[in-house]
Design a protein around this nucleic acid. Sequence first.
DNA 1: TTCAAATAGGATAACAATAGTCTTATTTTA
DNA 2: TAAAATAAGACTATTGTTATCCTATTTGAA
Lengths: 151, 151
Amino acid sequence: MLKLSKKVEYGILATQYIATKNGETVSAKEIAERMELSFDFLSKTLQALMKNGIISSQQGIHGGYKLSKSPDQISLTDIIHSLEERITIVNCLSPGDESCDKMDNCTLRNPFHVIQLKIDDLFTEMTIQHLLPNNDKLYSLDLSIKGTPNG
Amino acid sequence: MLKLSKKVEYGILATQYIATKNGETVSAKEIAERMELSFDFLSKTLQALMKNGIISSQQGIHGGYKLSKSPDQISLTDIIHSLEERITIVNCLSPGDESCDKMDNCTLRNPFHVIQLKIDDLFTEMTIQHLLPNNDKLYSLDLSIKGTPNG
DNA sequence: TTCAAATAGGATAACAATAGTCTTATTTTA
DNA sequence: TAAAATAAGACTATTGTTATCCTATTTGAA
Ligand code: FES
Ligand code: FES
């Protein structure tokens, strides 16, 4: 419950990896090997990111991928939206959903919408820039950390 | 992705329904009928809430459930923790998980932990009290709403 | 011109998680 | 003793996720 999909994890990892290569074209094979991810699955992910303008691709023998924007212009929400259709904590918060109409007695829409907007904010405020190695900006993010992550 | 389970939805709805009955014992049958939920599945949910001290049960012919605490003392996190094991956006944020050790090249733990803590906060700050009808406290919550939820 | 290495993309299989159902036992009161 | 309720385990069905397979296309270089 409330878990990110592997697709999104792959997407974030790959985008971050490409970002470290600063402009160089990186092949899916290289990313898969370095990150120890399934090549086929990663490829799907990269293709989706490409379609959504996060990265651009170069076909052919020396092809690969590079970022379309600078790392601080790519939010986690950008990546998530490229890779997933349903991203709301309940279906009835998705555009076009009619389940609320059927459930007369459900009064959770407003409260859940309050939470949904905040969750969206969290992923929007964090960018690929924040994920890069030796980054000191992570801790100055609005969503500042309260404990020590690694123990 | 990032979706609440039906179990949790049922749990929140049922707890909120019981809260509106202010102290009365309410049967699972009544909740299932009024909320149009599967009786069997709802029963499982109520039993789990009971085991975790959110509600108390009375067996026998006039039995049912009532709250163990006041609505403002029951957070959504209390309910979620009663009903779900894995509640982190990535597995490696769960206690005892070793997947980070295997993934040398994954640098997402700290950033994800930052987001995780904030998500936990959202569900902790919202209580059953906030869900009750004609409630004006929802909009004064720290996690204040930015748009109009219903359109 | 041919080959190798790369992306593009559809189809499908394997697996896991979720949701729902069924059955039986136990508890309580009338 | 019967009825109505909770308790709980087993099982099934459905859905969603993850991974794999296969073929086509693109590009550059030998
Ligand atoms: S079905 Fe829409 S809020 Fe519950
Ligand atoms: S495996 Fe732990 S952060 Fe990615």
